[in-house]
Amino acid sequence: MKLNLQDIPRVKTITKQDFIKYYFKPQKPVVIEHLIEDWPAYQKWRLDYIKQIAGDITVPLYDDRPVDYKDGFNEPHAKMKMADYIDLLKREPTKYRIFLWNILKEIPQLQKDFKFPDFGLRLMKGIPMLFFGGEDSHTFMHYDIDLANIFHFHFEGKKQCILFDQTQNDYLYKIPHSLITREDIDFKNPDFNKWPALKKAKGYVTELNHGEILYMPEGYWHYMRYITPGFSMSLRATARNPKNFSKAVYNIFFMRHFDNAMRRLKGQNWIDWKNKQAIIRTHKTNGIRV
């Protein structure tokens, strides 16, 4: 048995009006295949190019180890020179990933390689973020703290993306006071005996290729797996739905600070309690006895 996933719709290109009408307003994901071929980045942005212009920069790295109470919010697990990291990506599979790397801050000249497309939403121009990963590395299933509308531009290789919207929360074993699901769920090949509620979840899947853009609506859960080494850039626009906007404000100004305080106060017991609650609450909501 597999996850109940439908393919994300694909379009060759799209007008601002059609994007707003068919995808933004109904909050549905879409892959746009041919929109950035006039960008210098379309030709230039490969791992070798990033190594050439950013090789001396020390970058933060993350892997798929479970959250530890001693870890701060988004605290890296290791650091490495970008040149060494890209050599590692090309040499062998590695769990190390880069995420939320602000390219304007680190390498301002990269701004010349891309434009901010007009999708009819006001994109946040100060925080284009890059994400890198090695073969078969993946993110935990999560949603972003600000519940933003995300445009995810992929460069080099292939990347699998699995999405769920917020209506699926009851089936995903969401960790309380957090933005992630249980970290021991393998969304590539889930164990339905261990995670029976996942059978009810309905989501989306696609594989991104070089130059393709994935639109992820507000608050969508996403699991990203690098089929081959590669990298992506995300541009974002603030949540427009009042419920999502207020949730984003709560997450940023209360939830993450509360969670960090509880980690300091209770240590690993807090993490363990949250992990147990994810199962207890999910099974109770779905009338599952295990």
Rank of each mutant, 00 (worst) to 15 (best):
E156V: 07
E135S: 07
L172G: 10
G203D: 04
G230R: 01
K202S: 06
N102R: 15
R289V: 00
K112C: 02
H257P: 00
V31F: 06
S246T: 06
N286Q: 00
W39T: 09
W39Y: 13
M82W: 01
M216P: 05
P76A: 00
K202Y: 01
N74W: 05
R182E: 05
C161Y: 03
D184Y: 06
P242N: 04
H77C: 07
D18C: 04
K194Y: 03
K44W: 05
R10A: 03
D136A: 11
N169E: 15
D165A: 05
K28H: 14
V31N: 02
F258M: 14
P66W: 11
K200P: 00
K199T: 14
I185C: 11
Y220R: 05
V59N: 10
R263H: 11
D272G: 00
G287L: 03
R97C: 14
Y42C: 02
Y62P: 01
H152T: 00
P217D: 01
G55C: 13
F24G: 00
I185S: 12
K112T: 07
P66M: 10
G72S: 03
L235N: 06
Y215N: 13
H34F: 14
V205S: 09
P242F: 06
M224K: 09
K25Q: 13
A197V: 05
K188A: 10
Y62K: 05
W39C: 09
Q168Y: 08
I252M: 07
M82V: 03
V31C: 07
G267L: 10
K112H: 07
S137M: 01
D38I: 03
M124V: 11
Y250R: 14
F231T: 13
I86A: 07
Y143F: 07
R10T: 08
Y173L: 14
W221S: 05
H142R: 04
D7R: 11
E92H: 04
H34W: 12
A239W: 12
K28D: 14
L235V: 11
T15K: 01
F153C: 08
H177E: 15
F245M: 09
K274L: 09
L163W: 03
I288L: 01
P190V: 09
F164C: 04
H210P: 15
L47G: 12
W273R: 12
D118I: 02
D118N: 08
S234R: 10
I107Q: 15
F153R: 06
P76W: 00
D146V: 08
E75F: 02
F254H: 14
Y23S: 08
Y62N: 02
L265G: 09
E33V: 15
G211P: 15
D170H: 10
E37V: 05
T94I: 11
F258C: 06
Y22I: 04
D118T: 01
V67D: 11
L235T: 12
D118Y: 12
L61S: 13
T58H: 09
L88V: 11
Q111H: 15
I20A: 04
A239K: 01
A278K: 10
I150H: 06
A248S: 13
C161K: 00
K159H: 01
W45R: 13
V290G: 02
A201L: 05
M262I: 12
L35Q: 11
K188F: 15
E106C: 10
I14V: 11
F119M: 08
G55V: 12
D7Q: 12
G157P: 07
Q168I: 14
P26D: 14
D136H: 13
G72V: 02
V205W: 09
D186G: 03
H222P: 00
D38E: 14
N149M: 04
F119N: 04
P9D: 09
I180S: 12
